[in-house]
Design a protein around this nucleic acid. Structure first.
Lengths: 169, 169
DNA sequence: CAGTTTGTTCATTCTGTAGTGAACAAACTG
DNA sequence: CAGTTTGTTCACTACAGAATGAACAAACTG
C-alpha cells in the first residue's frame, strides 16, 4: 500500500530504529522525573544526534507541534540540559544536549527541588510557631513530630551537595 | 448561620490549624514525589496524629471518599510508609505512619525507581545490540553516546545504596 | 520596505489520571 | 443466621496539565 505520503525510510532504517529506542528510554526517564513526555522525546533526540538539530527537524522527527517543541526546549534550557548552537550560514537556531550528568542533575535539582525545600523551610517555621503557642497534652507529641520533620528537612539539604560531589566524577 | 450540619470546632482550633499545616506540607512533598495528592494528605494526617487512626476518621478529617482513602492506604502500605495497628475492642483497623526516613525512602525507591532501572537496563541492552549491527560513519558516535548512557545507568545504581547508607543515621 | 523565515505565545482541545460512590465481599455481633 | 460494620473494587466523572495550531512578533533578505 504505497498510498502513504510520508517518506518511509529515507535514511538507514537501523539508525532510525536506534533513535527511536533511545527516545523511548528518555521518555521513561522523563516520566520518572515528572516532566512532560515531549520533553523526554526532545532531549532523547538531541542526545543521540551527532550534530546540533534545528527546531523543524525535531518537529518532523518526533511528530510534535511547533508549540510543543518551542516550550520543551525552553524548559530544557532552563535546566541547562540543552544549549543553543550557532551554525554559520543558517538562520535557524540549532540545539545540542548537555550530556554531562552532573550538570543535568544540578539543573534539575535547582529548578525542581530547591524551591520546594525553601518553601518547606518556611512552612516548617510557621508550624513551629503554632506548636509553641499550644498548651495541653498534645504539646509534647507535636514537638517531637515537628522535630522529626526538621531533621528530615536538614537531611534533604545535606544530600544535595553530597549527590553533586559523587556525580562530579 | 447555624444551618451548618458539620460540627465547627470540636477540638481545639489551634490543633486543627497545625494539623492542616502539616498535611499541607505533605501534599507538597507528594507532589514532588509524583504521588497523588490524597496520599500526601493521608500520610500527613497519620504523621502528625499521636495515636493510630481508623479509616473513617481519615475520611472525615480530610473530606476524602472511602475509595480514595482505601486506595491511598494500600499504596502507602506497599511503600512500607504506613503500618496497620490492632486496637483491642475495636473492629476497625487503625493506621500509623512509619516515621523513619530511611525506611520511607527505601520503600519508595524499591517501588518507584528500582523497576525503572531494571527496564532501563534491558532497553540499554537492546540499544547496544542495535548499535553493534550498525556500520558506517554514525557507528563511532553512537557507540560513544551509548557508552555514556551506560555510565549514567551505573551511577544511578551506585547511588541508591549510598543514599540509604547516608540516611541510616 | 514587501516578503519570507524563524520562533514564541496563548486560547482551545485532548488525554490520562485522581477521586467518587455505589455495589460487593468479608468479617463480626447479638 | 439476619443484620450491621468494615473495607475493597471498579465503572464512571471531573479536572489538571500536555499538546495543538493559529495569531503574532522579530529578525533577516533581496
Amino acid at each position: 500500500m504505497p498510498e502513504n505520503g510520508q517518506s518511509v525510510a529515507v535514511a538507514p532504517a537501523r539508525l532510525e530504529q536506534i533513535e527511536r529506542a533511545v527516545v523511548d528510554l528518555f521518555v521513561r526517564l522523563a516520566e520518572v522525573a515528572g516532566l512532560p513526555r515531549s520533553v523526554g522525546e526532545i532531549y532523547g533526540c538531541l542526545f543521540i544526534c551527532a550534530d546540533p538539530v534545528p527546531m523543524d527537524a525535531l518537529m518532523e522527527r518526533l511528530h510534535l507541534s511547533k508549540g510543543a517543541v518551542s516550550q520543551g526546549l525552553r524548559l530544557l534550557r532552563s535546566f541547562g540540559a540543552v544549549r543553543t548552537v550557532y551554525v554559520p550560514g543558517d538562520r535557524r537556531d540549532h540545539f545540542t544536549a548537555e550530556r554531562e550528568l552532573r550538570k543535568l542533575v544540578s539543573g534539575y535539582l535547582q529548578e525542581k527541588v530547591v524551591p520546594h525545600l525553601r518553601s518547606g523551610d518556611e512552612r516548617l517555621k510557621v508550624i513551629r510557631a503554632l506548636v509553641a503557642e499550644t498548651n495541653g497534652g498534645a504539646r509534647k507529641v507535636l514537638q517531637e513530630r515537628v522535630a522529626q520533620l526538621s531533621r528530615w528537612h536538614r537531611r534533604a539539604e545535606q544530600i544535595i551537595p553530597l549527590l553533586l560531589r559523587v556525580l562530579q566524577q
